[in-house]
């Protein structure tokens, strides 16, 4: 099949404003958007800049806005995208070049929820045991690959970049509900700040955008409920 790619290009050293670059690519319907982008970069225009590492939906590097929806380019088949595919950088983060955005603010918010095990007790001789039921509680949020598709699809985040964002809340959820972790109180206090969990307006864009199909809005709701029940 012939596919027309409309790619939002921007080189800060040359361009005053972003523009749409158009490219025609011959591809199989089972090829991915990433393959088409590779084809453009390797055979048509080597200046096209994008980020990707594993190309298998695990590393989370190639989140981009494809046909208006945040997706991983390596998990989106061309047959599902139509004959014209528009590709833009994810929204709400500063564009460095073409499809590459500055992820520093995103990771700063990720670090702000202390995404590591907090447990002051001396480690037991073998391991900190956990039942299957205890693990089940936060199973969904362990799937996050930090691709930022959720946070950069969130209108609350677009409106206010200081909002901690769905991805950081998912990561906080993963520890708050872990029976081995003792830092839930501290994390909940951080998320109780005005730019914390209460900026979420339950829009569900994050849940729709997540390439790992995490029920993000539900996780955020569970954090809100945990905060509420810690007060009343």
């Amino acid at each position: 099949m012939r596919v027309k790619l409309r790619i939002k290009r921007f080189n800060p050293e040359k361009d005053e404003a972003p523009y749409w670059g158009e490219y025609e690519v011959e591809a199989e319907p089972t090829d991915r958007v990433l393959d088409a982008l590779h084809y453009v970069k390797w055979y048509q225009d080597g200046t096209l800049t994008l980020r990707r590492s594993c190309a298998m939906g695990i590393c989370g590097s190639d989140a981009m806005r494809i046909n208006g929806v945040n997706r991983l380019a390596c998990k989106s088949l061309l047959r599902d995208m139509g004959s014209t595919v528009t590709v833009e950088p994810i929204l709400g983060l500063p564009v460095i070049k073409d499809l590459v955005v500055d992820m520093a603010p995103f990771f700063a918010q990720y670090r702000s929820v202390m995404p590591w095990l907090i447990n002051e007790e001396a480690p037991p001789a073998r391991e900190r045991l956990q039942s299957i039921e205890e693990r089940e509680v936060f199973d969904d949020t362990t799937k996050c690959i930090l691709c930022a598709a959720c946070t950069t699809s969130c209108p609350s985040f677009w409106a206010k970049g200081e909002y901690v964002g769905p991805a950081a809340i998912v990561q906080a959820h993963r520890f708050i509900f872990d029976s081995r972790d003792h830092g839930a109180g501290q994390r909940l206090e951080i998320l109780n700040e005005p730019d914390g969990v209460w900026r979420c307006r339950t829009i569900f864009n994050c849940t729709n955008a997540c390439p790992r199909e995490i029920e993000i809005t539900r996780a955020i709701g569970e954090v809100k409920k945990a905060l509420l029940f810690s007060r009343i």
Binding site: W198, L228, R231
Partner: peptide
């Protein structure tokens, strides 16, 4: 806790 109570 203003935002919390307003949410509730």
């Amino acid at each position: 806790d203003f935002e919390l109570y307003m949410w509730f």
